[in-house]
């Protein structure tokens, strides 16, 4: 474990030293797990994650450097931004999985584009339902059913992803390609769920 240059204490996060409060220059490659002082893993306890963000934010937030010299103020802003970004990646299961697949040398999003024919046919069906619902003045009950169905599918997709990444596979393992395809399916599901949500909001505003 890296030690603090200022006081020699073991560091929990590269952003700052919890023992002496020194703000540190964070290396560009620091991972979101490192930043939040966690071991890389697909399962992250939400409460622990929030706790780490809060604890470290109290060390680096610009609020606590308002009277500091400009160099430190700027570093506080940068380190906070790094921390916030890391939190956003880790707080979202799909983004967390995406980060792990990439870090483990798995295929990138666009190299595993090909989706099974049956799945694409389903996507076309959802789109049809949404298209028709948009044109109708009254809420379409099929949309509500679709929303429930897609949310359930998303949850089981994420479950399969979690199983495949627990424990984390070897670097470059072929299992990563399977996870990537599943993640791409989640993207399709998210897009459709997003459209259902904006349809719902737009409808409630029209009324």
């Amino acid at each position: 474990m890296t030690k603090c240059e200022a006081c020699g204490a073991a560091l929990e996060t590269p952003v700052a030293c919890a023992a002496c409060g020194a703000l540190r220059e964070v290396p560009d490659g620091a991972s979101p797990f490192e930043l939040l002082g966690l071991e890389p893993a697909i399962v992250v306890d939400e409460r622990t994650l929030r706790g780490q963000l809060t604890r470290f934010a109290r060390l680096v937030h610009p609020d606590f450097f308002a009277a500091a010299e400009p160099v430190l103020r700027e570093r506080a802003g940068r380190n906070s931004a790094r921390l916030n970004h890391a939190f956003e990646v880790l707080a979202d299961s799909a983004r967390r999985a995406d980060w792990l697949v990439t870090a483990l040398g798995g295929p990138a999003e666009d190299t595993e584009r090909a989706m099974p024919q049956a799945f694409l046919a389903e996507v076309l069906e959802w789109n049809e339902v949404l298209e028709e619902a948009r044109a109708e003045p009254e809420p379409d009950p099929r949309v509500a059913r679709l929303a429930v169905e897609l949310a359930a599918r998303r949850a089981s997709s994420l479950e399969r992803i979690a199983r495949a990444l627990e424990p984390l596979p070897e670097h470059g393992s072929p299992a990563l390609a399977t996870v990537r395809r599943e993640l791409n399916a989640v993207r399709y599901l998210d897009r459709a769920l997003g459209e259902i949500e904006s349809l719902r909001l737009a409808r409630s505003e029209r009324r």
């Binding site: 610009p62 802003g77 940068r78 906070s80 931004a81 790094r82 916030n84 970004h85 939190f87 956003e88």
Partner: peptide, 8 residues
Amino acid sequence: NSTIPCEA
């Protein structure tokens, strides 16, 4: 709705 400070 990204927490600030933030950067990209």
